[in-house]
């Protein structure tokens, strides 16, 4: 089993324009077992995206270390797929060439050509090979970007609010697709999200974070059978629980007396 991530005492500080030191993340410790689905949730400024980008290797922690299967992460690599909030498809390439980009960059296009068709099929984009990104809807572009991140067979898929800009129905559709792909392909998925329902629907564990400085408040194990039902009573209980953790709920006191 590959795709286990160990985050060890990670602290990240920035220096802002006023020359003040801002602590984005403070003493983060997290063990993410292989093949699990983890959501990072919290208000903006809690450093969840910063943490995800550090796992991707796009930025380095100020202190502490992040290891993938025992190896310290120091730069981006194809074993960690990344899906951005915007689809970020290259506008000058067709959908097919966008998905093929990683394979070509690594020089394994010839051997792995069949994978592109497989993933185009998987995300439901068959027949759109020759289209350019601007000719497709936002949802389709995000699917293409998912296929692009997956086609190199990463052991970890990092998702930085990838569905945030989509309408509710498209979002639910793609959530199901992500779950289906996870079942089929076995990989660790770590997702940053603002959407509590999305986190409960997808995750094995939800990491709740608070800002200034970014810290982990709690880790909630979601013990619901799959496929999950968004209107199920237990689902809603988790919803309330997470909101309470985020200080957005649980204000209503029990009545002091009742008749």
């Amino acid at each position: 089993m590959v795709g286990a991530i160990k985050i060890d005492n990670v602290t990240k500080t920035f220096i802002n324009k006023q020359k003040e030191t801002i602590t984005a993340l403070k003493d983060i410790n997290l063990d993410i077992p292989a093949n699990s689905f983890i959501s990072l949730i919290g208000p903006s400024g809690c450093g969840k995206s910063t943490l995800l980008r550090q796992i991707a290797g796009l930025i380095a922690p100020t202190s502490g270390s992040i290891k993938l299967d025992g190896v310290t992460i120091s730069s981006p690599g194809p074993e960690r797929g990344f899906m951005f909030q915007e689809h970020n498809l290259f506008p000058w390439l067709t959908i097919y060439d966008n998905i093929a980009f990683g394979l070509r960059a690594r020089g394994i296009f010839k051997e792995q050509k069949s994978r592109i068709d497989e993933y185009m099929e998987l995300v439901g984009l068959r027949g759109f090979e020759k289209y350019y990104p601007h000719q497709l809807s936002g949802g389709m572009c995000q699917r293409a970007s998912l296929a692009r991140a997956l086609v190199g067979h990463p052991s970890v898929l990092l998702l930085d609010e990838p569905l945030g800009a989509l309408d509710a129905f498209t979002r639910m559709n793609i959530q199901d697709e992500i779950l289906r792909i996870r079942e089929e392909k076995n990989m660790t998925m770590i997702m940053v999200t603002h959407d509590v329902d999305e986190a409960i629907y997808l995750s094995d564990k939800i990491v709740v974070m608070t800002p200034r400085p970014g810290m982990i408040t709690s880790v909630v194990d979601v013990e619901l059978p799959r496929p999950r039902d968004r209107s199920d009573a237990d689902f809603l209980k988790y919803h309330g629980e997470i909101l309470k953790q985020l200080k957005f709920g649980g204000f209503k006191k029990e009545p002091e007396y009742s008749i």
């Binding site: 796009l58 960690r80 951005f84 970020n88 980009f101 990683g102 960059a105 692009r148």
Partner: peptide
């Protein structure tokens, strides 16, 4: 960043 995460 996309390029780097894809192994370019």
């Amino acid at each position: 960043e996309v390029g780097a995460t894809l192994g370019a």
